[in-house]
Design a binder for these strands. Structure first.
Lengths: 215, 215
DNA sequence: CAGGAACTTGACGATGCCGTCAACTAATAG
DNA sequence: CTATTAGTTGACGGCATCGTCAAGTTCCTG
C-alpha cells in the first residue's frame, strides 16, 4: 500500500489562517474551561462560523488532538531532560513534577491526561518516545537503588491520574496542593521502605477506557 | 430562633412509599451509571412520574444526599473497626481499603467521594464523627512510629481522590488495579523512608470545590 | 362517608448543544 | 480576468434534559 498519509494538498491560504485561529481559540478555551466547551463557543471565539469549525475538525477529538500534540512533545522533552539529571531520584522527580505542572497549568490538558486520549499516529509515536525515555528513567533509578524495583511505567499513570483529580478539585482554592499530593505519592515509589504490592501492574500500553459513552 | 428543623409532619403513606421507591431506584442507577443519570430515568425506574420525583427531591443534590447518607455511616463504622485492630498500620490500612472498596463498588459513590458533596446537617455530623476516628487512627500510627508524623487527615483526601480517578478509568478493564494504586499510595504514608513535604497541608475541613458550575 | 388537603400525573415550554446543508464568497490556476 | 474549485456562512432540525403546572387522584380526618 502507498504511504498511509496521502499527499493531502495544502490548505488554501484563508483556510490555513482559519485553522490557526481555531486552534488558538480552542487552546485558550480548553485551558480555561476544559475540553467540553461548546463547539460553537470555540468557533465564535475564533471569529469564525461553526460550519468552518466542523469543516476543519469534524469531531471534537480531532480538535483536541491537534491542540494537545505539542504537550506530548513537551513530555518527551521532559523525559530527556530528566535523564540528563545526574541524580537518578532527582531526574525521576523532575520528570513527574514537570508533567504535573503541565496538568496544573491547563485544565484541558489535565482532563486529557486523565482519560487516555490521543490515538493519531503522531500521538502514538510521541507516546512511544516518551515511554522509552521514562522506562529508562525507572530502570536507572532502580539500578541505583533509589526507586523501587517492582514498579513499571504503567504505575506512573496512577500518579498522573491521581494528581489530575487533585488539580481538578483544588485548582480554585489551593492551587499548590497538588505538590504535596505528588510528594506523598513519590515517597511511595522509593526503594526505601517499599512493601510488596498486592496486585500485578496494568498491562503494557496502559488502559483504554473503553468507548466513552457517558451513560 | 426556633430549632432549625421544624416538626415537619410525616409524609402521607403513599408519598412515603414513593419516596422509598425513588431512593431505591436512585441508589441503583447512581451505582451503575453515576450521579448524572437523567432525573426522568430515575423516576421511570421507580415507576413514578417525574413530577413526583421533583416533588420529593427538588434538586438532584437532595436526592444524592439522601442516597449516600448510609455510606457515610459505613465510613464511620470503618474508622471504628480500624481502631479496634491492634496493629496501628493494619488498622490504618483496613480503613483505607474499606473506603476504597466502597468507591470501587459504586460508581455514584466514587463520584461523590471525588467532589466534596453532602452538606446537610446529618452529613456534617457523620463527617465530624469520621474525622475524629480517623484523626485518632493517624496519631496512633504516628506514635507507634509506623505512620509519618507530618500527614493530616486532609492528606487522606489525596488518596481518596486519586483512587477515585483510577477506579473511574480502570473499572471496566482492570477492576482490581486500584488495589495496586492504593498500596503504592499507602507506602508513601509510612514513617519509614518519609521525606519532607514541600507544601503545607490543606486547611482543616478540606476543600470546598466552589460552586459546581460546569463551565 | 364527605370534603379538604396532600399528593401525583404527564404534557409542555425552555434551554443548550450538536452537526448539516444550500446558498454564498474568495482564492487560485490558466 | 474568468472559471472553477475550495472554503465559508449561519440558519435550521434534531435531540436530550430540565423543571413547572393545571388538572386529576388518593389519602385521611372528623
Amino acid at each position: 500500500m502507498a504511504p498511509s498519509t496521502e499527499p493531502t494538498r495544502p490548505l488554501r491560504s484563508d483556510a490555513q489562517r482559519n485553522r490557526e485561529l481555531l486552534l488558538g481559540a480552542a487552546r485558550e478555551l480548553f485551558a480555561e474551561r476544559g475540553i467540553d466547551v461548546a463547539m460553537a463557543d470555540i468557533a465564535r471565539h475564533a471569529g469564525v462560523s461553526n460550519g468552518t469549525l466542523y469543516n476543519r475538525f469534524p469531531t471534537r477529538t480531532d480538535l483536541i488532538e491537534a491542540v494537545f500534540l505539542d504537550r506530548l512533545e513537551r513530555i518527551v522533552d521532559l523525559a530527556g531532560q530528566a535523564l540528563a539529571v545526574a541524580d537518578p531520584w532527582q531526574g525521576f522527580a523532575s520528570y513527574l513534577i514537570g508533567v504535573c505542572e503541565l496538568q496544573a497549568d491547563d485544565r484541558g490538558f489535565n482532563e486529557v491526561a486523565a482519560r487516555n486520549l490521543a490515538d493519531s499516529p503522531a500521538a502514538r509515536n510521541l507516546r512511544a518516545a516518551a515511554l522509552t525515555g521514562v522506562t529508562e528513567l525507572l530502570t536507572r533509578g532502580a539500578r541505583a537503588g533509589v526507586l523501587r524495583a517492582d514498579v513499571t511505567v504503567e504505575d506512573l499513570a496512577f500518579v498522573i491520574w491521581g494528581i489530575s483529580r487533585t488539580v481538578e478539585i483544588t485548582a480554585g482554592t489551593a492551587p499548590r496542593a497538588w505538590r504535596r499530593h505528588l510528594a506523598l505519592a513519590m515517597d511511595g515509589f522509593r526503594a526505601e521502605g517499599a512493601h510488596p504490592l498486592p496486585e500485578p501492574p496494568l498491562p503494557p500500553g496502559g488502559v483504554h477506557p473503553a468507548p466513552p459513552k457517558e451513560n
